[in-house]
Design a protein around this nucleic acid. Structure first.
Lengths: 197, 197
DNA sequence: AGCACAACTTGACACTGACAAGATTGCCCG
DNA sequence: CGGGCAATCTTGTCAGTGTCAAGTTGTGCT
């Protein structure tokens, strides 16, 4: 689309004037988002933190949407990697929740589509990788054990894990979880719900 | 907190210069949010749509956060009303999903805490109303049927419904749901998962 | 060595949220 | 019934932001 864009996104780490500005800005952005959400993100503020001029970030991410899209794409990659190590569906759910807790900024941005460039290549491939990983985990539970549609099992598992993770990050489960380990709470919860499938 | 604020929030409809500016701005805001998310919200744009000056909205909502907080509070009220009519836990879940589809802007704002004034009175009371409604629906399913903790049943049901609704609004289930009625999909899904509790 | 290009800077413009201070309007109460 | 008064809205302003355009600096390659 835009031939002016560098597009050498993640080859080797850059060693230029700044060092690795792209990573520095990504990292600062993740801090800000984790603390105050994507709406608190300011490119100029990120530039200030990195000690560069206010327009420097644009060279790496084109614009605000580009930065958030890069974060989402990275997040889907990380999520796919995490899910690919799951032993079964329940374990995949636990890893999903763990991912959301360990990468809250990624998680939040990944599922806020109006902030993203939906047709971005790295984003769509990352999303596809994560979807494949989920499908793989779901394939372990036999279709006839669950219901008519095998995809329904995937939707159910995804909904449960995603809802739990989302509510957790929004501090909506603080009372119910208490001081227990959220992942353990989710495990027992998933075991109870899925015990018969 | 702020004694300058009018605070006569929702008595009778105002009949002043504009007519009912407060409602007009709320309504326009809901349109914008439903279409492009909360980050696309601009007070000046809302003022323009309502045909008033750029600073008029501030008189009704103090600032951007105030507007979003009012939306969230209204949303929790609507959700509580919907849940209070539920016949059982599964029906509450279906109504939860229906609420999210019918009021996507409310839903989105309600669960984005960093956009809200968390200590706002109307918000906290609205949230408490909705929480009560959920607890009421959960109380129908007996604790020993589910597991040790009865609250766990609430967390499970809430997570499932919230995750399904969130993924649905984000168009993450378009493929799996197809052209079926999402509420029906959720109903079968919840029936399968909760059939034994 | 020098050239092409990536990385960054400087400057500008339109837009936004927020605040202060003034103008207008309907309502209440004497 | 009319005068004050408070709620409603306007005007003006300021700092901050995203984005674009054009210039500058450094780097690796040939």
């Amino acid at each position: 689309m835009s031939p002016t864009e560098p597009k050498k996104t993640d080859d080797a780490p850059r060693r230029y004037h700044h060092g690795d500005l792209r990573r520095a800005i990504l990292s600062a952005a993740l801090d800000v988002i984790a603390a105050d959400g994507p709406s608190a993100l300011s490119l100029r503020d990120l530039a200030r933190r990195a000690g560069v001029s206010h327009a420097a970030p644009a060279h790496h991410f084109k614009d605000r949407t580009g930065l958030l899209t890069a974060i989402a794409a990275e997040g889907f990659g990380l999520l796919a990697a995490a899910l690919n190590e799951a032993s079964d569906l329940k374990d995949a759910g636990v890893r999903y929740v763990r991912f959301a807790r360990e990468h809250p900024a990624h998680f939040q941005v990944m599922f806020t589509p109006e902030l993203l460039r939906g047709d971005d290549l790295e984003l769509t491939t990352g999303r596809a990788l994560a979807a494949d990983a989920l499908r793989e985990a779901v394939s372990a539970v036999r279709a006839e054990d669950f219901g008519v549609d095998s995809r329904l099992a995937g939707v159910a598992a995804w909904s449960l894990a995603h809802g739990f993770a989302t509510l957790l990050l929004g501090h909506n489960l603080d009372g119910a979880v208490g001081d227990r380990d959220p992942e353990e709470v989710f495990r027992t919860l998933a075991t109870t719900l899925f015990r018969s499938v």
